[in-house]
């Protein structure tokens, strides 16, 4: 078992009982109901896929971002952070694997949203491109983990970084076209949104549920993966620098 798999397994054992996970599983159907109600009211049944993709990505990102901070806070509280840092294993690998575990769990919100659309609104959404959908969900989960790992370094440095965590959610949903397509946003916002992996993921997921064909699926999945990898590399670099700094300052165990 590599360190990556060991950390993934550790988090999969811990996460299902975490209040954060339960909260997202509870709220994803509610968000789906809200979005579908709006679409139904506007007689835009063509937007049903939006109503499934948006709560999926929102729930997944909330979980992922939450765990990126929680990992550090919990490790500090239970006294394992110091023990982990005192081993030769790479902490950035542990962090990204644990975030990925939670991000993968977040994929289950799509099943919830799909069921709510079918059972609650009679809109059984077809999945014409299941392979693209599965690949996009996986790439998106990995990209989320890589990107969210940037935040973990912030939590090592500042235990009070939760405010940053909280402010990163809704602006990102909006800027990345999760709630509405980038084409509906001002041009400058659309340009910014293209640099965020979520916009590519959202487009891909909607296309996998909607369109007769998904144009350039491999390229688009590769872009999601590359943006996620960039996030991971930035996160690993930051974490390494932050760890050096907290060793110097003596603030590693500060809560």
């Amino acid at each position: 078992m590599s360190l990556f798999l060991a950390a993934l397994r550790l988090q999969l054992r811990l996460a299902p009982r975490s209040p954060g996970t339960l909260q997202v599983w509870a709220t994803a159907p509610l968000f789906t109901a809200v979005f579908l109600s709006i679409a139904e009211h506007a007689h835009r049944t063509d937007l049903a896929s939006f109503s499934v993709v948006a709560p999926t990505l929102m729930g997944q990102w909330a979980l992922t971002l939450g765990i990126a901070g929680e990992i550090i806070a919990e490790e500090r509280n239970q006294g394992t952070l110091e023990a982990v840092i005192a081993t030769p294993g790479r902490f950035s690998v542990v962090v990204v694997a644990r975030i990925l575990a939670v991000s993968l769990l977040g994929v289950t919100t799509m099943a919830e949203a799909w069921l709510v659309a079918g059972l609650g609104f009679g809109r059984w959404i077809d999945v014409p491109h299941p392979v693209v959908l599965a690949a996009a969900l996986l790439a998106n989960a990995a990209a989320m983990a890589g990107t969210a790992s940037i935040l973990s370094s912030l939590f090592v440095l500042m235990p009070s970084a939760r405010i940053v965590q909280n402010t990163l959610t809704y602006p990102l949903y909006l800027l990345s076209g999760v709630l509405v397509p980038l084409s509906a946003l001002p041009a400058w916002a659309g340009a910014v949104g293209r640099a965020v992996f979520l916009s590519w993921s959202a487009d891909l997921l909607r296309a996998a549920l909607d369109g007769p064909a998904v144009p350039r699926p491999v390229t688009r999945i590769a872009v999601v993966a590359l943006l996620g990898l960039s996030g991971y590399l930035i996160g690993a670099l930051l974490l390494s620098r932050v760890l050096r700094r907290v060793r110097r300052l003596g603030t590693l165990t500060h809560t």
Binding site: L3, A6, A7, R13, E82, A83, T87
Partner: peptide, 20 residues
């Protein structure tokens, strides 16, 4: 402090072995 209380002893050691 210093252990994962929600995991078993074996699972704890698996993780720490992987760290090495």
């Amino acid at each position: 402090r210093g252990l994962y209380g929600r995991l078993s002893a074996r699972e704890n050691l698996w993780f720490w072995c992987a760290m090495y």
